[in-house]
Computed example of a mutant assay.
Amino acid sequence: MSTVAFTKGHGTGNDFVVIADPDGGLELADEQVAALCDRHFGIGADGLLRVVRSRALLDGAEAAVAGAEWFMDYRNADGSAAEMCGNGIRVYARYLFEAGLVPADAAELRIGTRAGVKTVTRSENGFEVDLGLWRTESEDVLVRARGLGVARPGQPIDVGNPHVVVALASEDELAGLDLTVQPQLEPQPASGANVEFVVPADPLVQGGVGVIRMRVFERGVGETLSCGTGVAASALAVRHWAGAAAPDRWSVEIPGGRLGVRVVTHDDGEHVLLSGPATLVYSGQVALAG
């Protein structure tokens, strides 16, 4: 049975197994990823980050051309591949710095993902990632969740991966959700979606910053303490609902802490940026199943 070195990290409680595979020689089956992420028989995590050079992957060819040396091969806890992870990419950046894989004084990192190349910079509370252009759909998705008496309309938001955001009326509704059961979407998106439930603060805008609370069910994982792209999607949905006077800066409270969101306009349109902490907890060796 072979063993690999790993590091455990998290961003506001959204936790990951990080495995360095610079030259792309490690092939992890879905079952092996699921075993590593299992909270009873494995290390335990919401997902796995494989640290690999872009040029070593077919998926990373465009990233390599775009100047992104490193590619974040992100896998959900069930082993399935995902396009992006907002908390994961900050942990990934932290790992690159701590492992000496990038210059310690690098002003920014360009990291390849299945949702394109993302730029990560240091911020006051850790790292900030430009998630790029975002878009919303005009058609609502009907969302049914245990703990809600009736189905609610959800707003589709794409920030490189798909989300459906549902507004709730009160803190009690948010607390009463049972997210041990996967919410049902109608129509069901072809590739599934993360589902966020949000409650705006009262007042919504405080000191020029929008404030909301959120819980999330991540596809391929279940409820997590935090979801970076879900935080961005939630802020964007509430901003969309609030109209033209809504702020471009947001503070989002999740069970694992608090993350910041900014919306900035570039020549190609509106970009959404996510900021927050990234922590490496411990390192070790683990046997691979199979």
Rank of each mutant, 00 (worst) to 15 (best):
A233G: 08
A81D: 10
M214I: 13
M84L: 07
V117N: 05
I212F: 11
L236G: 07
G257E: 09
L259W: 05
Q184L: 06
I212T: 11
G100H: 03
I43H: 00
G60D: 00
V231W: 02
D178K: 03
G243N: 04
W70V: 01
G260Q: 10
T7Q: 12
G100Y: 02
L48K: 04
H10Y: 10
E139C: 14
L57Q: 05
H240S: 13
F71L: 10
S80P: 04
V238M: 05
N125Y: 11
R262S: 03
L273C: 09
L109I: 06
V281H: 08
T119I: 08
H10G: 10
A29Q: 04
L96C: 01
E137A: 10
A64F: 08
M214S: 15
F97A: 03
V159E: 07
T12A: 07
G230I: 14
G257L: 12
V216I: 14
R53Y: 06
Q188R: 07
E83K: 11
A61G: 02
G47V: 15
V18R: 11
G176P: 06
S234R: 06
G11Y: 10
G207I: 12
T3E: 12
G88D: 00
G210N: 13
I111D: 01
V159K: 08
S54C: 03
L177M: 03
G132F: 06
L274M: 12
S54M: 02
A66S: 05
Q155C: 14
H266V: 12
E223H: 01
E27M: 12
A66K: 05
G284E: 11
G257P: 15
A29H: 08
Q206P: 08
H10C: 11
V165N: 01
G284C: 11
A107M: 09
N87I: 13
V205T: 12
F127R: 10
V221N: 02
E124G: 13
S170D: 07
F127P: 13
A93C: 06
V272K: 08
V17K: 02
L96T: 00
R215K: 12
V286F: 07
E171N: 07
R262N: 01
Q182F: 05
H271L: 04
E137F: 05
G284W: 09
G132C: 04
P153R: 04
N76P: 04
I43N: 00
E139G: 14
